[in-house]
């Protein structure tokens, strides 16, 4: 088991955001969390990566309890989080953004090798290597954010809404790359509102509704569930 989340409760002030959710990710899987706005998807990711402290519950990564580990430590353990809204460092160049992604890697040659690997997946970034992050288009920013997330050589990549604000062609492109990344051995926890796309590449899926996991199963099962079809797939 790569990651196991057990009975996680998260509060924003008095608001109970996650009502004790539990799920797991196995090595090499793409798992997707789907749900409507405010269901708690991003909260789940932020809690896993340590940005939010849960009130109770456990997050276990490779047998180690990381519930209260600070985010900068969690990155070192191999979990990389590509946050919602991309969160590119706008005043830094593309190269500097990628270097920050590899902040935990001391070896310069290794950083360059990783950067080449990112450029292979996202050739567009190589053309813009000395451009400021803030001047990139939305699609390029998403590529940069994903590439930056990969620079720390994660075993688990947390992707938050990679399709947000992108044109359908770009969405397709990004999802192909996600599949490719997974094929190279990185497990992925994907949070998406675009359920159709997410289910098409995921192995398993969980459906989150107002802080509770209401359904779980393989991506295929979930995609065929009539409730999901009605609520998220618009069929």
């Amino acid at each position: 088991m790569l990651l196991e989340v057990k009975d996680l409760h998260v509060y924003y002030g008095a608001i109970h955001a996650l009502h004790g959710i539990s799920f797991h990710i196995a090595e090499g899987e793409i798992v997707t969390l789907i749900g409507a706005n405010g269901a708690g998807k991003s909260t789940t990711l932020r809690t896993i990566s340590g940005l939010i402290r849960p009130r109770s519950g456990h997050i276990i990564y490779r047998g180690q309890d990381i519930t209260l580990t600070p985010p900068e430590q969690i990155v070192r353990m191999g979990i990389s989080h590509v946050p919602e809204g991309r969160k590119i460092f706008a005043p830094l160049t593309v190269r500097e953004n990628l270097e920050m992604g590899a902040y935990i890697i001391k070896d310069k040659a290794e950083v360059n090798r990783l950067m080449e690997r990112v450029f292979k997946s996202f050739p567009r970034l190589k053309e813009r290597i000395n451009q400021l992050g803030g001047t990139l288009s939305g699609g390029e920013q998403q590529m940069l954010a994903t590439g930056r997330g990969l620079m720390s050589k994660p075993s688990l990549l947390l992707l938050d809404e990679p399709s947000m604000g992108l044109s359908p062609i770009l969405v397709q492109e990004i999802f192909n790359i996600i599949k490719e990344i997974n094929a190279q051995g990185t497990s992925i926890l994907l949070v998406e509102q675009n359920a159709q796309m997410a289910l098409s590449i995921a192995h398993r899926a969980y459906v989150l509704e107002t802080g509770n996991i209401v359904l779980s199963g393989t991506a295929k099962e979930i995609a065929e569930n009539p409730r999901v079809k009605a609520a998220y797939l618009g069929v």
Partner: peptide
Amino acid sequence: RDTKQEGEVA
């Protein structure tokens, strides 16, 4: 307006 979230570390 209370935008601070409990438990948020950063």
